[in-house]
Every structure is written in C-alpha cells, then in structure tokens.
C-alpha cells in the first residue's frame, strides 16, 4: 500500500537578500516526501494561493499543490488540524522552523498534540517504513546521528542534515495545479499585540574582568592582547613540529 504522506511548506526567506524563496527545510520535507511516496505525495501550504514561491516547490515535480487559503495574521494550526483529520495520513513532514513569521518551530508539536500523534524532531533521514513502523535517523550536532523507531502515523520535522531539495524546474512549477481550499481562519489573538522590528545585531559578550580595585582594573586594561600573529615553526625538529600541532588539537578538543 502506498504511503499517504503530506509535506507542509511555507514561504522561506533568503538570509542575504531577504527575498521570498523555497524554505530550505520545507524543501527537504518535500524531497523526503517524494522519496517515500513519489507522485502520491501531497503538499500543503496555508496562506496565499497566489504566492509565487509555491511554484518553486511545485517545480520539484509536483503536479498539484493544495493551499488552505487564509490571511497571514491567522493561525495556521487549527486549519491544518482540520485538514489533516479528514485524511487518512501516515506521515506529516515539516521543516524544523519556518524562515518567516514567528519561526517558533511549534507547528509540528501543536499538530501532533492536537492529533495525538508522536512527533520526531530534527530528522536527517527516514530510512524505511515497514509494517506500520518507520526507521528514522535524527540529526545531532556536528554530523552525529541517532536511530529511532516510531509507529505510524507521526509528524517529522526535517533538519538541514536531511537530503537537500532537488532542483526546481521552471516549466513543471509553472504548469502545476494549485488547488485552493477556502478555510475559516481564526485570528491569532496573542500575536496581535506583538511589535516587530528588524533584528538588531547582538553585541558579542565582552570578557569582563571582575575587578574590585583600581590596581586590578589597571592590570586588566593594560594586559597585552593575546594571539595576534600566528606562530611559525621552521627550525624545530619534525617531531617537535608534529607535537606542536598535536598539542593544539588536544587543546581545541578535536581529538578525544
């Protein structure tokens, strides 16, 4: 029986230009969905059906895309919950965090809670689905992985370590059908009072010296800053040079 998989996509934002784009993690959710379900995959977006970015998702080889139409200030979760409840779904794939809006990353959790499903976060790969159970690899920091088994149905959020989204083909995206479902939205009441501003760059934390006396403060202020130029070893023996490198590796704790 083919799997019934839904990938949820949102409008991304390029970190350099700020322009709308296919979100990196959501693109991976579609990619994973295509890997597991092929053409049976359904892709769902909540928002504006005329959003051009949807064509970029569709260009990955989708013949159609479902949009639950509602305004930006509406909460996406109740609509999605109602939509997902109607279908007999095995896996819902999302990104970890959207690139626009609140970026709270709560959608998969809220949906999972509402539907009573388990949620697996930061998935690097869904290796296989057998006998109603999926073998999932979770992404841990610095390329490490953890294997987890989970019974269907479940919600998975895709980490950046998951296989990258395939190229979006212009022609395919252009021809894809966008099926709009009108939805009764609920205004996100909590969000109404929020104020949004462009992100201020955060100052790096300075090394503060807890000085109780003038002398200590003086010492701290006049201390020679460390590590301006690199060390160059030329005339030492090979053994000494290798040891110097090795010591640095130990100091940096990359060798354990």
């Amino acid at each position: 029986m083919p799997l019934n998989i839904v990938s949820l996509v949102s409008v991304g934002r390029h970190p350099q230009s700020g322009r709308s784009r296919r979100a990196e993690q959501d693109g991976r959710a579609v990619e994973m969905g295509l890997k597991l379900a092929g053409q049976q995959l359904s892709v769902v977006h909540v928002g504006n059906p005329d959003e051009p970015v949807l064509r970029q998702y569709a260009g990955m080889g989708l013949s159609s895309l479902t949009v639950l139409k509602q305004a930006d200030r509406f909460d996406a979760v109740p609509v999605l919950q109602r939509y997902l409840e109607q279908k007999n779904i095995d896996i819902v794939l999302t990104g970890v965090r959207s690139e626009s809006g609140e970026s709270s990353g709560m959608v998969p959790y809220l949906l999972a809670h509402a539907l009573g499903w388990p949620v697996v976060a930061r998935v690097a790969d869904i290796v296989c689905v057998e006998k109603g159970e999926a073998q999932v690899l979770l992404a841990l920091p610095r390329g490490q992985r953890r294997a987890v088994r989970v019974a269907l149905p479940f919600i998975a959020s895709l980490d950046l370590a998951a296989p990258p989204a395939r190229q979006s083909a212009f022609g395919v995206g252009l021809r894809a059908k966008i099926e709009t479902i009108e939805s009764i939205g609920e205004v996100d009441q909590i969000r109404v009072d929020w104020q949004e501003a462009e992100a201020k760059p955060r100052a790096k934390r300075l090394k503060t010296v807890k000085a109780k006396t003038a002398a200590e403060r003086f010492k701290a202020a006049t201390a020679k800053p460390q590590g301006d130029a690199g060390k160059v070893l030329i005339n030492e023996t090979t053994q000494q040079k290798a040891q110097a490198i090795f010591d640095l590796l130990l100091e940096e704790k990359v060798i354990r």
Binding site: H14, G59, Q167, S168, A169, F170
Partner: peptide
C-alpha cells in the same frame, strides 16, 4: 534545466542563488 531540473553539480545551487539574490 527548465523541465527536468537536472542542471548538474553546482548548477542548481547557482540558479537558486541567482533567483534569490
């Protein structure tokens, strides 16, 4: 490129960058 989406190697990434930036 426009129908198959199979620009090899860094092609896809470069095109995506061009579109976004």
């Amino acid at each position: 490129t426009m129908e198959k989406g199979q620009t090899p190697n860094k092609g896809a990434q470069v095109l995506e960058n061009i579109i976004a930036t």
